[in-house]
Computed example of a mutant assay.
Amino acid sequence: MDIFLEIGWDILHFQDYLEKKYLTKGEHFFDKYGFWGVFLAGITPIPYKIIAWLAGIFEMNKSLFGAGTFIGRFPRFLLVAYFGYELRNINFSLLWDTMWNINIQLFYLINSHNNWILDKFNILLSQTTYIVIGILTLAMFAKYRDLSKRIILGLGITFLIVFLLKFGINEPRPYLSLDGVHLLLNEGTEPSFPSNHTTMSFALSTMLFKYPNTKKIGAILFIWALLVGYSRIYAGVHYPFDVAFGAILGIACGWFAMNFENVRDYLYKIFK
């Protein structure tokens, strides 16, 4: 019985510690920014209930809470109602079919225009992608230790996101779904979307371009990354949309890695 009493006292002491450390900060935050927080939660996808709970915990002024809720939620509900009425006339199935047909036509446009010289070049370019990434990462580790840490962070995040998307979406490779594919490489049954080669190439290019001492190398690597993406379509292992999304994702991951501290500090200021 004594052990449960001791645990209970520990919980009460911990609760008292939290109240002293965070309750005052939370009250100041909601006094200063509460209206805008409730307003943004009302008009954006930010979870409104969480903000509402926090507003209650930190005893936000009820008038400001009501005003922020009305001004934020009312226009949102009007927009939802309006667009819901308008969207009923849109044939999403037809829109998706159109986009998919464009994807396939672009694939055939690139994949069908081939010759033996381009075959050799694109196979070499595609197969040396990870080798180039590895060599450059090691070179940066030897010369710019701080940059190499960001590269490892950026490539790690990139790989994780691509892995989750690939097996979450599970899109079949073009050569498994289409006829007449000029296939130079075979990736088995591994999902297609997005292109990991392209994503990793653009992530590395972005990080080197953002670093002052390697900006020129990064600019050159962007050209290389574009060619890598092209080679994946030419080789028959990816659709153009796989490559396009991979390029965008790679740039985003590279930017995040190079601005990690700024993003962290910004989030810390918001939730401090």
Rank of each mutant, 00 (worst) to 15 (best):
R76F: 13
N170M: 10
K62M: 04
Y33N: 10
S205I: 04
I220S: 14
G254M: 06
M1T: 14
L164Y: 03
N115V: 04
E261Q: 12
S195P: 03
D97M: 09
L95T: 08
G250D: 01
Y230W: 15
W224Y: 14
K32L: 07
G26I: 01
Y82F: 15
A252S: 12
W53S: 12
V263L: 05
Y144I: 13
F30H: 03
I104P: 08
F74P: 10
F193T: 01
G180I: 02
I11H: 08
F271T: 15
N103L: 02
I248D: 00
T128N: 02
F35N: 02
T24Q: 13
G218C: 05
L94N: 10
I151L: 11
Y130M: 13
A244V: 15
F163R: 06
R173F: 05
A142E: 01
F92V: 15
K216N: 12
V38P: 05
M258E: 06
T137H: 01
E6V: 13
L118H: 01
R145P: 00
F70S: 11
D242K: 09
V263I: 07
I270W: 02
D10A: 15
G218S: 04
Y234F: 08
K21E: 12
F121S: 00
R232H: 11
P172G: 07
L147R: 03
